[in-house]
Design a protein around this nucleic acid. Structure first.
Lengths: 197, 197
DNA sequence: GTCTATAAAAGGATAGAC
DNA sequence: GTCTATCCTTTTATAGAC
């Protein structure tokens, strides 16, 4: 049994927005990829932006199943989970021959006059990501030095990931991502300075 | 005496690509902003992408005059120059009510299938930026601990800036940028750990 | 809910006179 | 080098039968 029409649309749009960006993806692209007719799409969505909202909600609601769980498979140490998450992005970079872009980050920068509701969905995605990383660090709080800023550390992980992805794609060289993560690991380890090497 | 036509086109395109992005800026937008007619634009440029290349070259060639010199005005300490550069972006964020996006970073993420020549120009811009920051650190190399990775530290500055700008814009809150820079400052200071507070 | 056909506008680019 | 007019394609979205 095939998936329902609405899901096919969201799935196709998710992939296309990721591959080509929002503006460069036409409704016709979405229709052809999802094998849906114009009338059906506009039956479910008032317009293109509403498809985008549905996509952002799918990312938001799927962060565990699509991102965290696969990234953390077999990794139980909470601090290593942070680096496993980053390694998951590395895998995506390598698998796409350095064309990978974080779908949320790319949309956040592409959409210059994003509707407040769109920005809100983008922000939710960032927040959930940072929350997950912060939780990891807090789960290991006994290993960090006094006064460690867990939120700041988690936000920095996001910046490192987004910046690393941006550079790896621009240079078509995953080494840029690796160096970013390397610097970040150094920093995190300094925050656990009392831990044995 | 007015500027020549070609310059007006590049200037208008530079501003529009920054404000709206490449794909969302139409040739008509550029024509109307630069007060140039279609025929003139296509006299100087084969097509839209060539206007983009000229814009990226203008950023590249203008990094000192447009970015480094204003950012470093009155700042001579090389390490503080790095933070003055970041503070320059902060000013842009505040002045645009958190709508600022780094023009290079935004284009790097917006253009999914960028022509190699376009990517090359983007990469040049990143490289020059990172070079400038690395030079600052190296000019103060006696203050850093043995084995400090200056290139890595400079690349991290770029990631912090790009990530901080991305978050500040998405959340419409410069505090995200500030926290990113704060984390970065902590890291840099750890690399100068022997220096007196 | 789905289908085809099509409207209405905007897009990049060109022609050819001046 | 600049001007106006325009071609052709793509785009988002709608209409109305089934």
């Amino acid at each position: 049994m095939g998936k329902d029409t609405r899901s096919r649309i969201v799935e196709a749009a998710m992939e296309l927005f990721w591959l080509k960006g929002y503006t460069s993806t036409s409704i016709a692209d979405i229709l052809s990829r999802s094998q849906v007719n114009s009338g059906s799409l506009y039956h479910f969505f008032p317009g293109k932006q509403d498809v985008l909202l549905a996509v952002l909600e799918a990312y938001r609601d799927g962060i565990r199943a699509m991102l965290l769980e696969p990234a953390w498979e077999g990794v139980s140490d909470p601090v290593e989970r942070v680096f496993a998450l980053l390694a998951f992005y590395r895998r995506a970079i390598v698998e796409t021959e350095c064309q990978y872009g974080c779908p949320i980050g790319s949309l956040a920068l592409e959409l210059h006059d994003a509707d407040p509701i769109v920005r809100e969905r983008l922000a939710e995605n960032f927040t959930n990501w940072v929350d997950a990383v912060e939780e990891c660090f807090r789960a290991a709080d006994h290993r960090f030095i006094e006064g460690t800023d867990y939120r700041g550390l988690a936000e920095l992980a996001l910046n490192v990931m987004e910046g690393g992805v941006m550079q790896a794609r621009t240079y078509r060289d995953v080494a840029h991502f690796d160096r970013a993560v390397g610097q970040y690991r150094t920093f995190v380890e300094r925050m656990m300075a009392h831990e044995a090497a």
